[in-house]
Amino acid sequence: MFYPNSPQTSPQLTQIPYGQQYAMMQRQIQQPYHPFATTEPQARLYPYHYQGPIQQEQGGFITQQSTAASPQYVQMRVTPVDQSIMSGYPNQTANGSSSSSFNYNIHPQQQQQQQQQQQQLRHHAMPVGSVPLQDDRYRKQLIVNYLAPDVTSTDLHELFSRFGELDGARIIYDKQTNMSKGYGFVYFCHAEDAKEAVERMSGYEFHGKWLKVGYSTNPLNIVPSNSSPYVHAGSRGAAG
């Protein structure tokens, strides 16, 4: 039997160049792979992502010199942007860049009308829970959420009447099932009393439920100042 490094198959040491006398086997001759043993700084910083320098080929596509990437890492192929796409944008300079302001050559009167329309939209648009300043009635009506099913309009009136005089209180019921929808409205005579009720009743436990109280901004629920107070009856038909 002959071994790869046996004296019968191995040459004389004098015939082997210096430095390879003890590297006779194939696994010894093959050098191990060192990912950080390279002179390129990109490979030292990113050993798993770097795959060699990027070269520009004919046709405008950018390719990489090395083989496919590892399945664990996804390499994105980048193509140059066609400058003709950006030619339609206004205020574009000769080098292809555009300024931040756009001039669509709008007539001054049209621009003024658009600004007025935007101001009107901001004036009428009102986020949930906010209180408008032009109508004091919005500051007097509250919406009470997360009410228990057994709470009546009379219970709601008695709960909030300790903060001040009320114009009314009612629970909203479903017309088909005649069941409470879980929320109601309270109408105060003074805005200061309503503000105190919002601050003190939010998070209050009532009939096993934690109440959420806020201003009601729905104009359909506003009680006119010259109208008669609501009837605080315990029956659902009268309260709904």
Rank of each mutant, 00 (worst) to 15 (best):
F2M: 01
S6Y: 12
P7L: 07
P7N: 14
T9F: 12
Q12C: 09
L13H: 08
Q15A: 13
I16P: 01
Y18P: 08
G19L: 07
G19E: 14
Q20L: 01
Q21Y: 06
Y22F: 12
Y22Q: 14
Y22E: 09
A23G: 08
A23T: 09
M25Q: 07
R27A: 08
Q28T: 09
P32E: 12
F36N: 00
A37Q: 03
A37I: 14
T38F: 08
T39E: 00
T39W: 00
P47Q: 09
Y48C: 09
H49A: 07
Q51F: 12
Q51G: 01
P53M: 06
I54V: 10
I54Y: 11
Q55Y: 13
E57D: 15
G59M: 02
G59K: 09
F61M: 00
T63Q: 13
Q65F: 09
Q65A: 05
Q65L: 12
S66C: 06
S66N: 12
S70N: 00
P71W: 14
Q72F: 12
Y73M: 00
V74W: 09
Q75A: 03
V78H: 07
T79Q: 12
D82P: 02
D82F: 02
D82K: 13
Q83C: 13
Q83G: 10
S84D: 12
I85L: 05
Y89G: 05
Y89D: 15
Y89R: 06
Y89V: 06
Q92I: 10
Q92C: 15
A94V: 06
N95R: 10
G96S: 03
S97R: 09
S97D: 12
S98R: 11
S99Q: 06
F102S: 03
F102C: 00
F102A: 07
N105I: 07
I106V: 10
H107R: 01
P108A: 06
Q109Y: 11
Q110N: 06
Q111T: 06
Q115G: 07
Q115D: 12
Q119I: 15
Q120S: 11
L121R: 03
R122C: 00
H123Q: 01
H124E: 01
A125N: 02
P127S: 13
V128S: 10
V128Q: 14
S130E: 13
V131S: 04
L133G: 04
Q134R: 01
D135M: 01
D135S: 11
D136A: 07
R137E: 07
R139F: 08
Q141M: 00
Q141H: 06
V144Y: 15
N145E: 00
L147P: 11
D150R: 08
D150S: 12
D150W: 02
V151F: 02
V151N: 00
D155C: 02
H157F: 04
E158P: 14
E158K: 02
S161A: 09
R162K: 14
G164S: 09
E165H: 07
E165G: 09
L166Y: 06
G168R: 05
G168T: 01
G168H: 04
G168K: 13
I171R: 07
I171H: 02
I171K: 02
I172Q: 04
D174G: 04
S180P: 07
Y183G: 10
F185M: 14
V186G: 11
F188Y: 15
C189P: 02
C189K: 00
C189A: 12
D193A: 10
D193E: 02
D193G: 04
D193S: 14
D193R: 09
A194Q: 04
A194E: 05
E196G: 05
E196T: 03
V198Y: 03
M201I: 07
H207M: 14
H207Y: 09
K209F: 01
K209N: 09
W210V: 10
L211P: 02
V213L: 03
G214T: 05
G214M: 02
Y215C: 01
Y215L: 00
Y215F: 08
S216W: 13
N218H: 08
L220H: 09
N221C: 08
V223M: 01
S225Y: 08
N226E: 08
S228L: 09
P229T: 02
V231N: 01
S235R: 11
R236G: 07
G237E: 13
G237P: 03
A238P: 05
